[in-house]
Computed example of a mutant assay.
Amino acid sequence: MRRLVTPPCGPAVNRKINSRYQSCNTQNIPALIVSVRGIELLNWSVASKLYLFVFVVVGCLVVWDLNAALVSEQSFTETFDSEHIEDVLGGQIVENGHRSPWTVYVNGDKLVWKNRTHKQKTHFQTIPWVKFDGRSELSRLTDPRISVTVGAEPSGRGGAGLFIQQERRGQYWMFTVDDDGGYHILRKGLRALSPIANGQHAAIRKNEENRLSFYQNSDFLIFHVNGEEVIKVPKAGKRDMPTTVGLVAFGKGRFEFDDLNITETR
């Protein structure tokens, strides 16, 4: 029969074992302490701390650069420097039929719309697709910002400006300016186009071209003229619906568009 040998025990033996254990684990790592909270770093030199700081900063910059590469602002520009309507806006403009009171053409410098007969008529051109500058593929716009230079010479009430659709198809907003320092907000609902607001603003130049801009946040559609906010409109549709932008004019007269720019963060 084999005899079982009980290992020695007692305070002296335990102290000896603990002494060996501590010697084995700490003699080559004087800067570390084992604690219940984990491993703490002690006695770091100034140079080591500086190296760690630089490492963290460089890592953050690398991550920031990667995010910037993945999310960037794309831009589309149209100067209307052509004499052929099919050469502008990627050929999206369709000429009106003979029954339309609107004449649409480019004169080598601007996009020109004329209405000589019907003072109640509206004309708009949506821009749902663009080929961003420096890119080869077409992109469907979903949350664009748009700016354009307009000139308005209405005969009576009328103006030229921006078309914004952020609701169901067939419903949209119009923001236009006239030649007398005024702006006009119109909205097409389920049935008819209705004037919503109009007024004067010091930013709108009389008898001159004006630069109109649009962008939006989570609550409002925001319109600027010559860099100043003129009015903002509360959103009526779902906040996550895609936005369609374009150009618009209403009333009798001559209306011009130039230097169109559309941007979107992708």
Score class of each variant (00 low, 15 high):
residue 2 R to N: 13
residue 6 T to R: 12
residue 8 P to D: 15
residue 11 P to W: 02
residue 11 P to T: 10
residue 13 V to A: 13
residue 13 V to M: 12
residue 15 R to E: 05
residue 17 I to L: 14
residue 18 N to H: 12
residue 20 R to G: 10
residue 22 Q to C: 10
residue 31 A to C: 14
residue 31 A to P: 07
residue 32 L to T: 08
residue 36 V to L: 14
residue 36 V to W: 08
residue 36 V to G: 14
residue 39 I to T: 11
residue 41 L to F: 05
residue 41 L to Y: 09
residue 43 N to Q: 11
residue 45 S to V: 02
residue 52 L to P: 02
residue 54 V to D: 09
residue 57 V to E: 06
residue 58 V to A: 15
residue 60 C to F: 12
residue 61 L to H: 11
residue 62 V to M: 05
residue 64 W to L: 14
residue 67 N to E: 11
residue 67 N to L: 12
residue 69 A to L: 13
residue 69 A to D: 14
residue 71 V to L: 13
residue 72 S to M: 06
residue 72 S to T: 10
residue 72 S to H: 14
residue 73 E to H: 09
residue 80 F to M: 04
residue 81 D to L: 15
residue 82 S to C: 11
residue 89 L to H: 00
residue 89 L to S: 03
residue 90 G to R: 01
residue 92 Q to R: 08
residue 92 Q to G: 03
residue 94 V to N: 09
residue 96 N to G: 09
residue 97 G to A: 06
residue 97 G to R: 05
residue 99 R to D: 10
residue 102 W to Q: 04
residue 109 D to F: 12
residue 114 K to I: 11
residue 118 H to S: 13
residue 119 K to E: 14
residue 120 Q to K: 09
residue 124 F to E: 03
residue 128 P to I: 05
residue 131 K to I: 08
residue 132 F to M: 06
residue 133 D to G: 07
residue 134 G to A: 06
residue 140 R to C: 06
residue 142 T to P: 00
residue 142 T to W: 02
residue 147 S to W: 08
residue 148 V to P: 01
residue 150 V to Y: 02
residue 150 V to I: 12
residue 151 G to E: 11
residue 154 P to N: 02
residue 155 S to P: 01
residue 156 G to M: 11
residue 157 R to A: 05
residue 157 R to H: 08
residue 163 F to Q: 02
residue 164 I to W: 00
residue 166 Q to C: 10
residue 172 Y to F: 13
residue 172 Y to G: 02
residue 172 Y to M: 02
residue 172 Y to K: 05
residue 174 M to F: 09
residue 174 M to Q: 09
residue 176 T to H: 00
residue 180 D to E: 14
residue 181 G to M: 04
residue 181 G to H: 02
residue 182 G to T: 06
residue 183 Y to N: 01
residue 188 K to A: 05
residue 191 R to D: 13
residue 194 S to N: 12
residue 197 A to E: 12
residue 203 A to N: 08
residue 204 I to C: 07
residue 205 R to E: 07
residue 207 N to Y: 06
residue 209 E to G: 09
residue 209 E to M: 05
residue 210 N to E: 08
residue 210 N to W: 03
residue 213 S to D: 02
residue 215 Y to L: 11
residue 217 N to G: 06
residue 217 N to P: 00
residue 220 F to T: 15
residue 223 F to W: 01
residue 227 G to I: 09
residue 229 E to G: 06
residue 232 K to R: 14
residue 234 P to R: 12
residue 235 K to Q: 14
residue 235 K to S: 03
residue 235 K to C: 04
residue 240 D to W: 04
residue 240 D to I: 07
residue 247 L to E: 00
residue 248 V to I: 15
residue 249 A to S: 12
residue 249 A to C: 15
residue 251 G to S: 03
residue 253 G to Q: 07
residue 253 G to E: 03
residue 259 D to A: 12
residue 259 D to G: 04
residue 260 L to R: 01
residue 261 N to I: 03
residue 263 T to P: 00
residue 264 E to H: 03
